[in-house]
Computed example of a mutant assay.
Amino acid sequence: MDKIRALAKEGRRSINMQLCIAVESYLEQYEKEHGEIPVPGED
Score class of each variant (00 low, 15 high):
1 M>D: 15
2 D>V: 05
3 K>Y: 09
3 K>E: 14
4 I>D: 02
4 I>Q: 03
5 R>D: 07
5 R>A: 10
6 A>G: 10
6 A>P: 04
6 A>V: 14
7 L>P: 00
7 L>Q: 08
7 L>S: 03
7 L>M: 09
9 K>L: 05
9 K>F: 00
9 K>C: 00
9 K>P: 01
10 E>R: 08
11 G>L: 12
12 R>F: 02
12 R>E: 08
13 R>A: 01
13 R>N: 04
13 R>Y: 06
14 S>E: 04
14 S>T: 15
14 S>Q: 03
15 I>Q: 05
16 N>I: 14
17 M>S: 06
17 M>G: 01
18 Q>D: 02
18 Q>F: 07
19 L>S: 08
21 I>E: 06
21 I>P: 03
22 A>V: 05
22 A>H: 08
22 A>P: 05
23 V>G: 06
23 V>Y: 13
23 V>L: 15
24 E>S: 11
24 E>C: 07
24 E>K: 09
25 S>Y: 15
25 S>F: 14
26 Y>E: 03
26 Y>F: 15
27 L>I: 15
27 L>V: 14
27 L>M: 14
28 E>M: 07
29 Q>M: 12
29 Q>D: 14
29 Q>T: 13
30 Y>F: 14
31 E>H: 02
31 E>I: 04
31 E>C: 02
31 E>N: 01
31 E>W: 03
32 K>M: 06
33 E>D: 05
34 H>A: 00
34 H>F: 06
34 H>C: 00
35 G>S: 05
35 G>L: 07
35 G>I: 08
37 I>S: 00
38 P>F: 09
39 V>S: 01
42 E>Q: 08
42 E>F: 12
43 D>I: 08
43 D>V: 12
43 D>L: 10
